[in-house]
């Protein structure tokens, strides 16, 4: 059989539609954001006024108290919530997998929270957390424990938001990790058992190393989504009390939309996009190195 030698045109030409889609849906909006971030936008006589302000918007980032609080709270939320979700998701996945077909009901129940729209979750938990009328404090009252100000206390509000986020998003980790657990080769575990390994040793020495790539991928996916948290904060606390639950997305919303400052809002957005991209790139690089050394 003779092979046909294709020139570079058909090869690269076939990529053209994908490049167009990428430019239209990803690159252009980000480029527009970048462009806006160097501008001061105002309206005069119904006409938009754009003034080039150079790096002024970026320089202002350092003095923004809301942004500082937003970054620190978002990092806490991402690390704590994602770690808990991955740990819980893995535990549930292992439990469901060990039950075989009889776990179907549990699987359905476990994924329910992720199917509920964020706005409903916010409403449900806001009612449950209500200081005076909420079911949680009513339950505590029955036990003789005084009511706790879950959303109004600066010391508890972020933790309360994190609990909601864990409840909402653990099913995401559960689903990804369940697929990985179900895909584990049975013969390796069985061989470990034959060699006398305990359940813990089998998990620690056999299953966990095999699951590690899936755990890292789940963590990164979940962390990226957690970084964008908005609806839960918006509905539960609006960033308060004070700046106790301020998160980056909420800061962008306030600066960009409520305060109608698209230039500065774009600067925050660009900074966040590049920071998150950098973190993901570093995480993937570390994962690749780990894979390469195995």
């Amino acid at each position: 059989m003779t092979s046909v030698q294709l020139g570079w045109m058909p090869k690269y030409g076939s990529l053209f539609p994908a490049i167009v889609f990428f430019l239209a849906l990803a690159a252009l909006p980000v480029a527009n954001l970048l462009f806006l971030s160097f501008m001061e936008i105002s309206w005069e006589g119904g006409v938009v006024q754009r003034e080039f302000v150079g790096l002024e918007n970026y320089a202002a980032l350092a003095d923004d108290p809301l942004l500082k609080a937003g970054i620190s709270n978002t990092l806490i939320l991402v690390v704590v919530a994602t770690s808990c979700q991955v740990a819980l998701g893995l535990a549930l996945a292992l439990a469901c997998s060990s039950l075989g077909n009889s776990s179907r009901l549990y699987r359905t129940l476990f994924i329910l929270p992720i199917l509920i729209p964020g706005i409903i979750i916010g409403a449900i938990w806001r009612l449950m957390y209500n200081f005076q009328f909420g079911i949680i404090n009513q339950g505590l009252d029955l036990l003789g424990i005084p009511a706790i100000d879950w959303l109004g206390s600066p010391h508890l509000a972020l933790a309360s938001v994190i609990v909601v986020d864990i409840w909402h998003w653990t099913p995401f980790s559960f689903l990804l990790l369940l697929a990985a657990v179900e895909g584990l080769p049975k013969d390796v575990s069985e061989a470990a058992k034959v060699d006398g390994a305990t359940a813990w040793q089998e998990f620690r020495r056999v299953s966990l190393p095999l699951l590690w790539p899936a755990i890292v991928t789940t963590f990164i996916f979940r962390a990226v989504i957690a970084f964008k948290v908005f609806d839960e904060v918006f509905l539960l606390t609006s960033g308060g009390p004070g700046t106790a639950t301020e998160v980056i997305s909420f800061t962008i919303y306030q600066r960009f939309f409520l305060q109608d400052n698209p230039g500065y809002g774009s600067a925050i957005s660009v900074a966040v996009i590049f920071s998150v991209a950098l973190v993901i790139a570093i995480a993937l690089q570390m994962q690749n190195r780990r894979e390469a050394t195995r």
Partner: peptide, 20 residues
Amino acid sequence: GAEIAAITELGLNRAVAGEI
């Protein structure tokens, strides 16, 4: 007004919450 409100909302709320 929107920018001023963002400042006063934060400052007053933090004072009532006992943050500052």
